[in-house]
Design a protein around this nucleic acid. Structure first.
Lengths: 335, 335
DNA sequence: CTGTTAGCGCTTTCAA
DNA sequence: TTGAAAGCGCTAACAG
């Protein structure tokens, strides 16, 4: 069904080596006329070199692996995925995507990576399933790895740091400075599941702590994962006698839903309820009022992706690098 | 660096065959105690069977391929991707994603598929780059293929039909019946690039034609691909002296931006401007007014995904199947 | 410029 | 229950 080089060789009246030369790109090696014959026969048979055999022989798969924490819907992950795909396409790589949403998936992902499914991996998992030892077991095989991660990473792997917590704390302190007394946090579910607060939630709690806000006055609800949940959570919050006068949402999408919910409740943003999101998505600019947010100024992830491809190209493993992304609080109309 | 079965065998004092038995799942084949020794040695060395070698030998990759037309941001594609990932994970498959946004990428994707990158493919590309002959060259290798597609598909491949055009025409006819005289269409860019109108655009033009609307009165603008572009496009449209009294947007996201733009311009939805979107995303329910839309009642794509996995499981290639999804016009508050 | 051939790491048949 | 060995399809070193 799937033709092999041998069949093409027979059809073209040459040896398998010649077929391999033609498809292997070793151009000068084959006479133009022979080359033509081979291509013609291959075209007729619908031949394409078997990837498994080629990978086994060459020791390279021409694939890169993206390890994600969740499925689409998160703008910042999407952008990373897109930049990785574009770079991969341009360099002749395919992209295989692994999703890690449980311990079992993390173990499976590590096995698959150690099994050589790809020539390198870009790991963007925030949960706790992918433990340092698991990551280390992958890195120790010599696989080029770039990890976007807080906390510990094994030696020999590039790491990208995103100082979310600091920028978020700044935003929440801005709310406190404005005199907001009841600041709600609209959390991603996974933030609530982890042991210690990290990232966005950590920024929130840290700012409140720093200003001596009674922990009992914290108001943390789930809903940042999707727009409808956010709308509903905020609508409910606003019905409380002790309603918040500010909402810090862990995503811009949730923050925009918050603006809707506040307006639909007959209240004003920011006068009655200040709103701040996270992510700096473009949509925030057309919200009414424009959304104040915490996030990167540029969304482009090519620098992260380049870390990986630099490693793929290198003969010798280069020294491990650390990239720190810039995050800031962007004040616009909603807070 | 990456240990082989041979090394594990030596460390455990057994033959490579035994190592293979342990990792190949052929359970009863190995004495519990031997098995333990092998696993222990493998764990120490960090062994995982080489995928390329295994694939070559077994003739199966344990991978499925998703071929997409664009990168994230399209809710309906995201849902398909998620359902595919979940099914794949559950069945022990990985997912490799190919993106086809040009003729060159289409040719490359076909080569990669014919090269056996995966055991089956789910193809969800609406553009014209992936021509029927290219698709046929892939199907003819015997690769299980499920295509979500309008128009021609090669024999031997399952196809999923989405009657978008009919449902969209119904929505536009509803606008006409309401007495709307100037109905704008907010298009995806790719719809404007293709030769003949298809899908959503086709529904729009067909409805107008059917009611004898002068083609010169059609109002087609780009902007459905992203929320900000939609907002700006509509804002501009509303400034025209001959402003539309209805907007049919090719995506719900654009339709929601349209609602904002109309309200921010001091006009009312639906009194001054009716708005209808496409996709039936949840977010439409919390829009104000709730968004009228065209789309599926259920978003679940497990039936589509199952077509593929049925084919993967089958010994004999089953007869080609056609799945027709149900699309309808869902009238809510915005039109 | 083209052909012959070893061998990548694994699975699986067959033999012990 | 375990081992020996052939061979999946390809590439690359070497020979001609």
């Amino acid at each position: 069904m799937r033709p092999t080089a041998k069949q093409v060789a027979e059809a073209a009246g040459v040896s398998v080596a010649t077929v391999s030369y033609v498809f292997g790109g070793r151009d000068g090696r084959v006479a133009p006329e022979t080359r033509q014959r081979v291509l013609e026969a291959a075209g007729r048979l619908g031949y394409a070199p078997d990837q498994a055999a080629r990978s086994l022989r060459r020791g390279r798969t021409q694939r890169v692996c993206l390890v994600q924490g969740s499925f689409g819907g998160v703008p910042t992950e999407e952008r990373l995925a897109r930049d990785l795909h574009e770079m991969a396409d341009a360099q002749g790589y395919s992209v295989v995507t692994l999703t890690v949403y449980s311990r079992a998936r993390a173990v499976a992902a590590a096995d698959v990576l150690r099994g050589g499914i790809a020539d390198g991996a870009l790991i963007n998992v925030s949960g706790e399933h992918l433990t340092p030892d698991l990551l280390a077991s992958v890195v120790s095989t010599g696989l080029p790895v770039v990890a976007i991660r807080e906390g510990e990473v094994p030696p020999g792997c590039d790491v990208v740091r995103v100082p979310e917590a600091d920028a978020c704390a700044e935003a929440v302190e801005h709310l406190i400075a404005q005199g907001r007394r009841r600041i709600a946090f609209l959390a991603h579910r996974h933030e609530l599941y982890t042991g210690r607060p990290s990232g966005r939630l950590l920024g929130y709690t840290r700012a409140l702590d720093r200003h001596g806000v009674d922990p009992a006055r914290r108001l943390i609800v789930s809903g940042a994962d999707d727009r409808v949940a956010a709308y509903q959570a905020v609508t409910e919050l606003l019905r409380s006698p002790d309603r918040p006068d500010a909402v810090f949402a862990a995503s811009d999408r949730a923050a925009i839903s918050t603006i809707w919910a506040v307006r639909d409740a007959g209240l004003r943003v920011p006068e009655d309820v200040a709103v701040i999101g996270v992510g700096n998505i473009d949509e925030g600019l057309i919200a009414n009022p424009p959304l104040s947010t915490v996030g990167p100024l540029r969304h482009d992830c090519t620098d992260v992706v380049r870390l990986l491809f630099d490693r793929l190209r290198a003969e010798e493993p280069p020294p491990a690098r650390e990239l720190v992304r810039t995050w800031s609080f962007l004040r616009r109309g909603s807070a």
